[in-house]
């Protein structure tokens, strides 16, 4: 499932964003060894302050399993600034109809050992379809995306090969990085969907997700604790005690949410 988080709804999905920053720290610092700034186990840079859009992938339990960050190429973005090595110092492409995707990653650990059994390739396809479909709705025709050679191979194998690259493949930390071009065409989306057997709408409606996040809290209440609250309720002698029990239960629910 895909959720798009931007400046307009980020307050609602703050906990998901927080989890995403932690995933990025594990991937880009720990696994890929990129020179990224980690604060409190979270990878956040100055482009996160530019109100980008995040395409976030969630599993059935609403854990973050993948993400990408989108910025317009008409304004400040990574290829025009920090990734100038890839472009060999050349100015980047700038177009109203092209977005830049960076920090594209999926959670290898969770996808390898997770109970859903979803493969890395499948997750990459879904995330990619999410980016392409979201961009297409916005009238965008091409994506320039910074990826590593492993991701590049996954794209090629899943009928989603970039049509070209800009600049060069350069060393970055433990791996290399490159800038690939993908057109947001109906044909490409169809191909990737067919390869990964993705059907139907992959985007989660925002209000439904907000409800699911509340529902997720409930099972955390253990049976013992629930029994305790039931006892408290039945032995309550007045409205004040009942209200206090309800408030405590509510507070515990809120705590486990974070």
């Amino acid at each position: 499932m895909i959720l798009v988080i931007d400046a307009l709804n980020r307050d609602t999905f703050g906990s998901i964003l927080d989890e995403m920053y932690q995933l990025r720290a594990r991937v880009f610092s720990d696994r890929m060894g990129w020179d990224v700034k980690i604060t409190n186990g979270r990878e956040i840079d100055e482009f996160d302050d530019q109100n980008p859009a995040y395409v976030v992938q969630l599993d059935e339990d609403l854990n973050v399993t993948g993400c990408a960050r989108l910025l317009q190429t008409t304004g400040p973005h990574m290829l025009s600034d920090v990734f100038s090595d890839i472009l060999c110092g050349e100015p980047p492409l700038r177009s109203a109809l092209m977005w830049e995707s960076t920090r594209f990653c999926v959670d290898h650990d969770r996808l390898d050992h997770g109970k859903g059994g979803k493969s890395i390739a499948h997750a990459t396809c879904e995330l990619m379809v999410g980016i392409l479909e979201y961009a297409r709705t916005a009238g965008i025709e091409d994506i320039v995306t910074v990826i590593d050679p492993i991701m590049n191979r996954i794209l090629k194998r899943s009928d989603n090969a970039p049509y070209d690259y800009v600049g060069e493949t350069v060393g970055m930390g433990k791996v290399k990085a490159m800038a690939a071009l993908l057109e947001c065409s109906e044909e490409r989306i169809k191909r990737v969907r067919a390869f990964a057997s993705i059907t139907g709408n992959i985007f989660i409606p925002e209000n439904e997700l907000a409800e699911m996040m509340t529902a997720k809290v409930r099972p955390i209440m253990t049976t013992d604790l629930q029994d305790y609250f039931d006892d408290q309720f039945s032995s309550a002698t007045n409205e004040r005690e009942k209200a206090a029990t309800r408030a405590l239960q509510q507070a515990l629910g809120d705590v486990s949410l974070h």
Partner: peptide, 17 residues
């Protein structure tokens, strides 16, 4: 030795710049 799409994308960027 580049794709037609690459030519188009670069020309679009050039026009806009």
């Amino acid at each position: 030795s580049i794709s037609l799409r690459t030519v188009e994308v670069h020309l679009r960027s050039t026009r806009e710049k």
